[in-house]
Computed example of a mutant assay.
Amino acid sequence: MKIAETVTFGGSGLDRAAELRGKSDLLADKLTHGAPVLMIWRGKPLVAGADRDRLAWVDAKHALVPDRLDQLVFLGMDDGQPRFAADVSHWEPVEMDRESLGLFLDPSEQHPPDVPANHVFAELRLIMTRLSARDAELAATAKAVLGWHHTHGFCARCGAETQMAQGGWQRDCVTCGGHHFPRTDPVVIMLITRGNKVLMGRSPGWPDRMYSLLAGFVEPGETIEAAVRREVFEEAGIRVGRVDYLASQPWAFPSSLMFGCYGEAISDEITIDPTEIEDAIWVTREDMMQVFADTHPDIAPARKGAIAHFLLHRWLADQLD
């Protein structure tokens, strides 16, 4: 396995068993006989343990699941065992910290009924590096697909209500016959260097000291390389020459595929577009080492598990393969 495949949410090799998605009777039988279900509450997976380091599974008889049986997503086969996911966002906790729910990173946890005390719904971005590669892939898949269903209940062709099909991997319109599939938005995120320094930026509203690599959506009719050059110039006024692909990461916040790229800048002077980003700066290797040690006065370390952290770490280690 290449180093690039060890990025968080990648490298698990989950058997998605697409050939089983259309076999609704078989999947229903698996649920009847105790197939594990991962509950997702408002984007948060149910996790277990004092360190919140593994997914917690229930069966289809759990109090929050039975009225959602026709809305479950078949995630695939894990060591020969089928796995499902259920959106239980309809559940209302007795006590809920609504202010935390709106934060950039929600630290609050919710404890659903009929599970052990150490089973809670937790923000995936906060616990993603604690999960095994398989659990991380299952959680990201469940969050992304269920999130798509939440926002795509009506046909984009005729406006009629759609129905879940194919084990949760399709929505069908009975009015016009249209078929709709979970979307993934392509995003480039780029390690742009100029000699001994790397380009970093921050978006409005980010926490203090938070900087990251520049990123942006790939536009229709555009290559990855062209998107890198366009986004860097639009946001920071920097021209980029050579561009190479490094690694990719599924990013279920809400449904992107991040294409990690390396680019060589052919200009130095930064001119930001304030409608795109709040700030952009060049950071030397020496300063970036301070950032990773969390001793830099102005820049916080990139969040572990995010592809930005992965790419920066590989740059510092001279392992850009």
Rank of each mutant, 00 (worst) to 15 (best):
T8C: 12
G13L: 09
D15R: 15
A17C: 05
L27E: 03
A35W: 04
W41F: 10
R42S: 09
P45D: 00
G49R: 01
G49S: 00
D59W: 06
A60Q: 14
V65N: 02
R68M: 08
Q71D: 13
G76R: 08
M77H: 04
D79I: 05
Q81F: 02
W91G: 01
W91Q: 06
P93G: 08
E95I: 11
R98Y: 09
H111R: 14
D114W: 04
D114I: 01
V115L: 02
A117K: 11
A117S: 10
H119P: 01
A122I: 04
A122C: 08
E123R: 02
L124W: 05
L124F: 14
M128C: 13
H150Y: 09
C155E: 07
A156L: 12
C158K: 07
C158D: 10
A160K: 13
A160L: 03
E161V: 12
T162H: 00
A165F: 09
G167Y: 05
G168W: 04
R171Y: 06
C173H: 11
G178Y: 06
P182N: 08
P186N: 14
V188Y: 01
M210E: 10
L213Y: 13
R239G: 02
R242F: 11
Y245M: 08
W251C: 07
F253R: 10
P254Q: 12
S256C: 03
M258A: 06
F259T: 02
G260F: 12
Y262V: 12
A265T: 09
I266G: 02
I272F: 05
I272T: 08
P274R: 15
I277T: 09
I299P: 05
A300Q: 04
P301G: 05
R303G: 11
G305E: 04
A306W: 13
I307R: 07
L312H: 04
A317M: 11
A317Q: 07
D318Q: 08
